[in-house]
Design a protein around this nucleic acid. Structure first.
Lengths: 334, 334
DNA sequence: TATATGAAAGAAAGCGCTTTACATTTTCTT
DNA sequence: AAGAAAATGTAAAGCGCTTTCTTTCATATA
């Protein structure tokens, strides 16, 4: 059997209370402390976090919900969040929600039963009801990569509006007039589109909602949509994909149609994942300061958990346009 | 405050024992059962998994250690394992070990304090000491993607030897004689190399250990190594990268040197991640039946946890060579 | 009708830890 | 050296649940 605090107490010849105190670094006489420490070593004793959590102590565990680990951007976010959490002495329980509000509710409920100390909700968290509930019950939460303007909740994200604006401006400056967008069903995409529209407006270009298509989150669907875009009688000369994964689908659709990038078609992505380095030509995309965002989100959450801060904050970081070779001067201009 | 079993009991007018019984689907009179169920709804009662775990019940939580989420193959494995685990009613606590034996030991110890029911160790788990300990204490463990021939432990993997053999044979059949390998520090790579060597031997080709280089797991290092390979006075005409990530690095190094793939250099990867579709030309690689492996691993673990099976099993699945455009006839033959 | 039988419900102990309130020892004053 | 103050240690209750052991009670049996 695993040793318990009783075993240690017996071995050390003190009471369990004393053992508890040395575990928690409380005032204990030097001699007793030594005896206890020695006993703990000898028995290879490790306190049960369960038992201590039952008495009200936090579990040092964070629930982390994300839409889908298969997206490299999300995977990297997970990686960074995990790193920071471990640095700060917390564990992460990860759940993929697949953009599904019921799963979101389910996992949150489950994790609460397991007494996680707080939640980080990454990507597009859809179930506002559940989120509101968490806030009402003062469960520590931070939103990563997204805001809910109507709710007071700690959030960290990158300015998607600006990102979209910059991509579109870049494309426009290359002479493109017909710029399509392929998005996913998420707030971040909506913001990027807002930025894109603003850029068009600022440059006096026509807006055409037909040019904006939304994919469910599968690769096949995205490729199909991209293909449809390219097969139009009046196809776009540039496509802004709201993430790199979507951009790959555009590449694939273009390749199938023997379109050369960037000569026949300019493509821009978003997220600066390793995918954007692997394509040929390398993908113009938007970099987000992933590590900073993630560290910040974890730190926010831990502050809230440890009760150090009562005020809610929102941090918006700046994206950075990475111009590579997948975008070029519009062929119609040449 | 969150409602406890006492609140429910009071509300329903029964004892807590009765409530506990309905929670656990034990023999309870119909009338009491209804009253309890009703009370639970009304109070929105959710049992504390902590408290129940303290009495010896399992926590329905699996510890999942993997080397690095940033590798898309690993991310997909994580995704599948998570899916299957959730299907079976288990949660996953994920920890990235960075190929670091101390981290491995640390996380295992931590997770044991949190009373996870068992472990899935994916990728290359290095700390044999710790693994042995787990086995001795009869903690359920399954190895995913790797074997320890000397230890009796449930394992699921793909036959890396065959994978390596097939890649090399494919390359050889294209006329390549100087085939370099770029590997990572892991057993799976070692097996793939074994397969590669066997293929060379079977075809009567010379073996040259100089042609095999091992990268730490960073992209930069891999790119540097690939470059060194290509800059040799007698460079290889083909490179077998032990995973797709490494293959990308080879692509990058080749692109930098204006080498055309596959005309000047054939490149093969391993894992069939989405990276292999995004490159140009698309990457020849080896597909692993990720979903089946992961489901199987989870199922093994759960069987062991639930005590349904006492015997240890090893499953080896077959890899599949995916020939795409990054490998071609050796230029020296043309 | 009296008794045996089994199902249903409850009392209470225990899981491993924290914490409060109290008892004991040590240390310091004067 | 006596008494007060500070430091140290302990007993015991409680966290929310499971489980064993009884007790209670309705039903079947003779």
């Amino acid at each position: 059997m695993k040793p318990t605090i009783y075993d240690v107490a017996r071995e050390a010849g003190v009471s369990i209370a004393t053992v508890s105190k040395v575990i928690n670094n409380q005032q204990v006489g030097k001699k007793s402390k030594e005896k206890v420490l020695k006993a703990m070593k000898e028995l290879n004793y490790k306190p049960s976090i369960l038992a201590s959590a039952l008495t009200g102590k936090p579990t040092s565990t964070i629930g982390f919900l994300l839409p889908d680990l298969a997206n490299p951007f999300v995977a990297e976010v997970a990686r960074r969040v995990e790193d920071r959490a471990h640095e700060r002495g917390y564990n992460l329980v990860i759940c993929s929600t697949d953009f599904n509000p019921e799963k979101e509710a389910l996992y949150i409920s489950l994790l609460r039963q397991k007494s996680v100390d707080g939640f980080i909700l990454a990507g597009s968290f859809k179930n506002v009801e559940v989120l509101r509930e968490l806030l009402e019950e003062h469960i520590p939460v931070v939103l990563l990569t997204e805001f809910y303007p109507s709710l007071s909740v700690n959030s960290v994200k990158v300015d998607d509006f600006i990102g979209g604006y910059e991509v579109a401006s870049h494309l426009i400056s290359l002479g493109h007039q017909k710029i399509a967008v392929i998005a996913e069903e998420a707030n971040s995409s909506r913001e990027r589109i807002r930025g894109y529209k603003q850029a068009l407006r600022d440059h006096g270009l026509d807006m055409d909602d037909e040019m904006i298509v939304t994919s469910d989150s599968s690769t096949e669907d995205a490729e199909r949509l991209a293909g449809e875009l390219l097969d139009r009688s009046d196809p776009p000369t540039a496509i802004f994909a709201c993430n790199d994964l979507l951009a790959i689908s555009v590449f694939l659709a273009a390749r199938e149609r023997k379109l050369s990038i960037p000569d026949d078609l300019s493509v821009a992505g978003y997220d600066n994942t390793l995918l954007s380095r692997s394509t040929d030509p390398p993908l113009t995309t938007v970099a987000q300061p992933i590590q900073e965002m993630c560290s910040q989100a974890v730190d926010f959450l831990i502050e809230e958990i440890e009760g150090k801060s009562k005020i809610k904050q929102r941090i918006v970081m700046s994206p950075q346009l990475m111009i590579r070779k997948s975008t070029g001067v519009c062929r119609l201009e040449k």
